[in-house]
């Protein structure tokens, strides 16, 4: 194995994957046919023609951002591709799985079903914004304590949903947690442990004001 393929703890999985894809493209495209522009991830695939970009001001995890985006950009794509906040996951991209759950003004919402332009002036919170520095949010900690995941792809959505669920205060039993978390699918089927994590975190957060 060459030096460049050695494990580097400073390289994230995403960067590694992007590098691997780029290497694959370079290897498979004949010289002279490689389009440098296409290797760069576009904010929104330009299917169906081009659109004029528009200025949008977003507040994400307390930080203001002045962006120029395609009006078609969803909040999800803008978080991931423009702001590089890749903790929010794209699952189905059609509002059927909950992986993209974020908070808009403190309420849980699906970032794949809203345009970024609609969220101007709103307080957006993502999974990157709920810990207190190096101290995990109690719900994050509960998911670790109860092993509330296998592959982890749905986990940021589950946690964002659970944090809001606890604040909403409508779920006191495990059955109610299951019903009011039903918008978050887990294909690994970690539901029993997710439920335990949510119930545990809810108990610990009761009256804590978080």
């Amino acid at each position: 194995m060459s030096d460049e393929n050695r494990f580097d703890p400073n390289v994230t999985r995403r960067e590694l994957m992007a590098g691997a894809v780029a290497a694959g493209v370079a290897a498979s495209v004949p010289a002279g046919l490689a389009f440098a522009d296409e290797a760069a991830p576009a904010a929104v695939p330009a299917v169906g023609g081009s659109a004029v970009e528009m200025g949008v001001k977003l507040i994400v995890n307390g930080q203001p951002h002045a962006l120029s985006i395609d009006p078609r950009a969803t909040l999800l794509d803008t978080l991931r591709e423009t702001l590089s906040l890749t903790g929010t996951k794209k699952g189905c991209d059609h509002g059927q799985c909950g992986a993209c759950t974020v908070h808009v003004n403190g309420e849980r919402a699906l970032s794949c079903l809203m345009l970024a332009a609609q969220c101007e002036g709103d307080q957006i919170t993502t999974i990157e914004g709920i810990a207190n520095g190096d101290e995990l949010h109690p719900v994050q900690k509960a998911f670790i304590d109860h092993d509330g995941f296998q592959c982890g792809y749905c986990t940021s959505g589950q946690i964002m949903s659970a944090v809001a669920l606890i604040k909403e205060g409508h779920a006191t039993t495990e059955d109610e947690v299951r019903e009011l978390m039903s918008g978050n699918l887990c294909r690994c089927g970690a539901y029993p442990n997710i439920c335990k994590a949510v119930m545990d975190a809810q108990g610990k957060l009761a009256g804590s004001g978080i």
Binding site: T101, V104, A109, L110, L113, M114, S161, L180, G183, N184
Partner: peptide, 9 residues
């Protein structure tokens, strides 16, 4: 109907 995330929006 739907989920809390959708009903909130």
């Amino acid at each position: 109907g739907a989920s809390t995330q959708i009903r909130n929006v």
